[in-house]
Design a binder for these strands. Structure first.
Lengths: 169, 169
DNA sequence: GCAATATACTAGGACATCCAAGGGTTTGGA
DNA sequence: TCCAAACCCTTGGATGTCCTAGTATATTGC
């Protein structure tokens, strides 16, 4: 946080790994560490853009997901699966979004265990505005070249598939 | 969390973006979302490997950093800068590592504002063992091909530089 | 049909991250 | 010299993530 470092700390770490005889895994270590740090930077940008809307990334993701659902509503367990987060994280996000009147809980018509989450009118409006802001301020200014974007999607997609996120494609 | 999805949720999101007329930023959105999810998967793997050592990734990073320091000690603000996290996060990590007797705080010899963090003998031992475990269980099995690793390092390195992480190189 | 198993959500706890503020130490300009 | 500004660390608060249990509802199998 703060001023730029004179040198890339991850490149330094990679050199340290090599110097200690772990040259065979130094590069993957550096790549993985770079992914962790890049995520941190991107998350900070996203949170900055969402803050004026009273949203965090976790809450925005849920809103965006709901806004694309055919019926406009989803069971919590479905949201948990699609967002790939723990069910309790969804409960947490829904609690806060409900308090902000952006979503509403309703009982599932046939399964008493299930709770449906539904966008309110205001939730839909906020979702649309927040998406527009993210598109113009973050996704539209990622700094990645088109080729790099394609490469990232392909490589990370294969990684996620191998990790068990999904099966097809 | 749990069973694989039948389809890639990020690819679905990308299609939704395109369907709503945001085709110009759909690909970067997908790439960024993939980075977020990949980080989540990698972090989970890392935490699993570190758990037997009583470490989290944040604490491990600090131990590893100290183990490469010439003097074996670093000021907290230096650690904060190199790890690229908020100073309070370092305070938090040091508190817990100190409680586990893996590091020790000591006053800076000439600057009364600064606190030095130093590895204990046990801290050094644990750091070495944890590094070996991560090397064999995570970095050595990343699933990324050599070319992909090089590409990630290069592309994410440029991104981090542009984001202001560091200057040279 | 009823008990055993499985599923869905929530409550409580451990950790991590950041921000805002506060108290102590140094530095630097008037 | 001396006080304001800058710097360093810690505390307290808000969020998010996960895990472990616990409660309620469904489904399955005998």
């Amino acid at each position: 946080m703060g001023t730029p470092l004179p040198r890339d700390p991850i490149a330094d770490a990679q050199r340290n790994w090599e110097r200690h005889g772990w040259g065979d895994v130094a590069a993957p270590m550096a790549a993985i560490t770079a992914i962790m740090r890049t995520q941190q930077i991107l998350l900070a940008r996203i949170e900055t853009v969402l803050k004026p809307f009273g949203l965090t990334f976790a809450r925005y993701e849920l809103l965006a997901l709901l806004s694309f659902a055919r019926s406009g509503a989803l069971p919590m367990n479905k949201a948990s699966a699609l967002l790939q987060v723990h069910p309790t994280s969804v409960t947490n996000a829904v609690d806060r979004l409900e308090k902000a009147a952006l979503v509403a809980r309703s009982p599932h018509p046939t399964d008493g265990r299930t709770t449906l989450i539904e966008l309110t009118a205001e939730g839909r409006t906020i979702a649309k505005k927040a998406t527009a802001a993210l598109n113009s301020e973050v996704f539209g200014k990622s700094g990645f070249g088109d080729d790099d974007v394609d490469h990232l999607i392909r490589v990370l997609g294969a990684f996620r598939r191998d990790a068990g996120d999904f099966t097809e494609e």
